[in-house]
Computed example of a mutant assay.
Amino acid sequence: MPFEAINPPQFPTPIAPYSAGAKAGGVLYVSGMLALGEGGAVLHPGDAAAQTRHVLDAIKITVEAAGGTMADIAMNHIFLKDLADYAAFNAVYAEYFPGDKPARYCIRCDLVKPDCLVEVASVAYLA
């Protein structure tokens, strides 16, 4: 099944060969989002809450560009550099998902750049 690449124009040039999202058969797969600016510069170093907000805003922009809303997200894959940031992440996350919560998992791992603290990839059902 072919897919439609979703690349909102307000995003900086990606640091690797990927699309922000891929829509296929009524499902949107959102790439792992990091708090990166132009040229791959890490935004908000040391501030997990600010990075979480940036990441979830990027996911929201991608989902809306594909014709959906944050309420269409069914699954979030969460990656944290340090589980000490879990509470800060959850406080911001709750603002973006105030009603029924999507399924999710969270793991601690190293991320693409040392100053990146938060990465989230999402799956939304848009049919």
Rank of each mutant, 00 (worst) to 15 (best):
L56T: 05
A50M: 07
T13Q: 04
A49M: 01
I107P: 11
S122T: 11
H54V: 06
G99Y: 02
F79W: 08
A87L: 05
N90C: 09
L56Y: 05
D115K: 04
I59H: 03
V118N: 01
H44K: 00
Y105N: 12
G37C: 09
A20F: 03
N7M: 07
A58H: 03
K60H: 08
A65Q: 04
L56H: 01
S31I: 09
E4Q: 13
G26E: 09
L34G: 11
P2E: 10
M75D: 09
S19L: 03
G39V: 06
A41I: 15
C116I: 10
P9N: 12
I59E: 10
A16S: 12
M33F: 03
G67A: 10
G46L: 05
A88I: 05
V112Q: 04
A65H: 01
V30R: 10
V123I: 15
N90G: 12
V118F: 01
D47F: 13
R108E: 15
A94N: 14
A49L: 01
Y125L: 15
I73E: 07
Y105G: 06
L126P: 11
A65D: 11
Y18T: 06
F11W: 02
N7P: 05
S19C: 08
Y18R: 09
S122K: 03
Q10G: 01
P14T: 14
P45Q: 13
Y105W: 12
V118S: 03
I6W: 06
A88V: 04
